[in-house]
Design a protein around this nucleic acid. Sequence first.
DNA 1: CTTGCCAAACCTACACCGTAGAACTTACCG
DNA 2: CGGTAAGTTCTACGGTGTAGGTTTGGCAAG
Lengths: 216, 216
Amino acid sequence: MARRAQGTSAGLDRERIAAAAVALVDRDGLERFGVRRLAEELEVDPMSIYHHIKGKAALLDAISEAVLAEVATAADDAQPHDWEEIARLTAHGYREMAYRHPRVFPLLATRAQTSPVALTALERLVTAMRAAGLPDQVVADAPLMLFGFLNGYLLAVLSGGSGQAGDMPAINATAYPTMAALASLQAGFGSVEEFDRIFDTVLGGIRDQADRRGTR
Amino acid sequence: MARRAQGTSAGLDRERIAAAAVALVDRDGLERFGVRRLAEELEVDPMSIYHHIKGKAALLDAISEAVLAEVATAADDAQPHDWEEIARLTAHGYREMAYRHPRVFPLLATRAQTSPVALTALERLVTAMRAAGLPDQVVADAPLMLFGFLNGYLLAVLSGGSGQAGDMPAINATAYPTMAALASLQAGFGSVEEFDRIFDTVLGGIRDQADRRGTR
DNA sequence: CTTGCCAAACCTACACCGTAGAACTTACCG
DNA sequence: CGGTAAGTTCTACGGTGTAGGTTTGGCAAG
């Protein structure tokens, strides 16, 4: 481990630290992540990191911020005004980020998201829904509903398998006959098709609720 | 800390350990939880715990198992056959457990649930849905959809506030005008009314999808 | 050119953590 | 009475986050 003399610059900054941290969590997982290991990766003394980020909690914040930024830039390509299309695009971007960083994702799902990038995405969606004439209460509930589902679903899908698609826990057929009978229909566990199917059902719930309440 | 002589029984068993662990996490949070602190609470040497539970990971498993068991016993009171009623009852029981143990809940949402108590609840729901004539694919998707939503939603609601209801993060009005305009409609953040409203919307999605696909 | 200051990096040290391994005491069974 | 298994404690090791102090180089003012 090549240590440099005190006082000489190591070129550290918040961005470089966050990028290395994301890579480290991707490789070794959240459990094994720590300040010392990150420092070793950066070829730097552990305490150097604390001059840019004030503690481990802030380090985890920086990690979630970094991966969230990825999905934002990916969703900026197209700018549709149809709210369902916005929702689907955002959801797909979010899902792809989750699959790119499966071991980072629990961090995102656990922490409240109040960063500008998250709020901007929500604002866009909510504005489009309102412009489409959806009832205000339905629009107001949408963020919690959609991202609640996305976080929970992705958490389940990512922690369930080895990363390889298509492996369910393999349930006991005699104890749970109905579940077993449906097993073949759950074959594509974690696939895009499954995601589209279920996310569409959630969107359908919003549509349905809007119809039931009238168009504002 | 009253230590007993070696060899004398401390009356430890998996159940008592799990109960104490749940209480400790409820009080101090997951971050501060550890084998040594739990041992102190039980007035026992840390290593004694390892004769009943093989490691910290297994300890966390025992914790989630214990809180999951609470919701099961609560849902056994009524036995309706209407699938929507089953879903609502289960969801409410699950929600109440989450509010009883807000600092334990992230453990449940993060770990894949393959325990018998979880599978039994799913089997009941899925059987009722099938009996009602819902299309198999919709039924097969329901567990992932419903518990995905429940986990994500509850995670968001529980980590968002101080535990007191009604406090949203307080967003910037000029940067996010639409969000700000809807703020008053998000007043009951974390309330039962909000939960019922959103969960109903999700159920509506399933109903809608079933109609669209025909009744099997 | 000198001086002083400060940001960035390092070093040391502390309290705490999970847990492997061995020693000890007791209860029970033959 | 001897043996064995279970439950508890003791000791120790390598790891962690981080508080506090020290060193160094670069830059701006005089």
